[in-house]
Write a protein that binds this DNA or RNA. Structure first.
Lengths: 149, 149
DNA sequence: TTTATATAGTTGCTTAAACAACTATATGCC
DNA sequence: GGCATATAGTTGTTTAAGCAACTATATAAA
């Protein structure tokens, strides 16, 4: 692979993820305007629990691409907000299973709608074929790097 | 624009910027292995100063897509590391012009090479046409959202 | 000129990321 | 059983993000 595949001037925008930062901020803003009082990081944890409740913290690490201390503290904060509960596993006493609390169940439809709406704002005017290609590229980047980071 | 352009299951990976997170982590790791003792956030500020020295903090905000407090503190830390210097503008006494210090000049070639190398690792196996499309999509997303966030 | 408004930057506060070091439990091997 | 090692999670520390509130200077309007 050639070493100068990128001209210097192009480096920054590709590395720093301005686009995903912008989507995150907009989603946070849309949450706030809808009086949803959670952070997008907390939402990302709930998102995976809505898909499957009762995940362990390690499974949440893998799903959200965060390290263990980050998940410990996100779960701490979600517990304080009474949105999830830690339940010690009976099979393996090292593990906590994280379960949705009633308040979080209520948030699901509202925040999913806001997330869809945010993506539509973000991708206004982008043709669907290009979205698909962008997703493939980002997934490939992730796969290329995730293993050994 | 249809409201269900995205299936729920696809939402998360597109929103959270796992790919750019992964690139950032890898770049940080590559810095560390090369004994470059700066954060990628600090590097992103230096990157713009290498392109043009003597930017104001506000210009750095715009260039790096950060708010003013973030730049204040990044410049604080870069000053502590003796990599930049604040110089009060004579034309407009509200402004600080940020100038590279000798230590930062030395970092440029080394870190630019590491950034290029990191991108090559990230994009291994991705065809260049798809990279171009992905860049266009991300730029469009940024443009769609940056104005009013 | 003085008054309102906009701009540049700082400080305080809360949340989160990343890394190292740690505890506790489980598993594999002798 | 007893020991080494792996796994799950926590705690401490530093850096940064994002928001609100603030100071200081500049600009525009009356």
């Amino acid at each position: 692979m050639p070493n100068n595949q990128f001209k210097r001037g192009e480096l920054y925008s590709f590395i720093t993820g301005k686009a995903s930062t912008a989507i995150g901020r907009r989603l946070q803003k849309n949450f706030k305007e809808a009086n949803v009082e959670i952070t997008i990081e907390q939402w990302s944890v709930l998102y995976h629990l809505w898909k499957q409740d009762g995940l362990s913290q390690q499974q949440l690490c893998d799903a959200t691409f965060r390290d263990k201390p980050s998940i410990t503290r996100l779960v701490d904060n979600l517990e304080k907000l009474k949105l999830v509960k830690r339940v010690a596993s009976k099979d393996d006493r090292r593990m906590n299973m994280i379960f949705l609390a009633p308040g979080a169940v209520e948030l699901q439809d509202k925040t999913m709608e806001l997330a869809n709406q945010t993506l539509n704002e973000a991708l206004e005017g982008v043709i669907i074929e290009h979205i698909e290609i962008a997703k493939l590229v980002l997934q490939k980047v992730y796969d290329n790097l995730a293993g050994s980071v």
